[in-house]
Amino acid sequence: MKTRPPIAARPVARFGRSGTAALALLLALASPTVPIFAAAPATPPSAAAADPQAMLRGAVDEVLAVAYPEKPADPAAPAPAPLAERVRPVLEKYFSFELLTRSAVGPGWNQTKPDDQKRIITLFTELVIRTYSDKFEPGARPAVTYAKPVEIDAARRELPTSIAYAGKTYSVSYRVRQQPEGWRIYDVNVEGVSMVANYRAQFTPLFDKGGAAAIITAIEKNIADYAAAKK
């Protein structure tokens, strides 16, 4: 798998004028949802909004910077907050937890009262962030390589990556969707197992039996059990 830095992330100045034009054209071709004039300045923030892979790279780099700090922790300093708390602001920036939760609940979502929806989003977000941050183990920083994005439709992309970690390689694929604020992650697929589809398979029978209340109780129980096991 050959990887190149995302088009948008490469320095523009070096290419000169024709380079900028070519870049704008490439960007426009790569993401049909973006009008050409919007791509021309190609500064990192707007590029991240336009190019899903640039967004993902930014997200992964930020998460890794939090999970694997360059400087070793100062032994005199107070113990850092749990990883889940530290990565939460980063993940909230790049994930659409609302879309992720809605997709995981499935058809029952529209029959759920707004208050219950809010509660499920809050609880499920906590569960997902905890699960995600549990995957990081102390040791060498994982090396991530990015493959070519796959277009699902105009507003959705699948972004395959592979993660080399402790002598093994895992395939991790992200589903992202164009939101008003930019591209946002709404599913993570590890070795062919979609997280959202996996929760959907568990939420559906719960919802069929006890509605939104059953889902809320089940997530609350999981969070409480986990906290009890940690103590």
Partner: peptide, 21 residues
């Protein structure tokens, strides 16, 4: 650890994994 119904989570996870493999 992340499952709400461990049996359903493992069943779905296994079937998804094999289907993609």
């Amino acid at each position: 650890k992340s499952a709400l119904d461990p049996y359903l989570a493992v069943r779905n996870g296994y079937l998804q994994y094999r289907e993609s493999a």
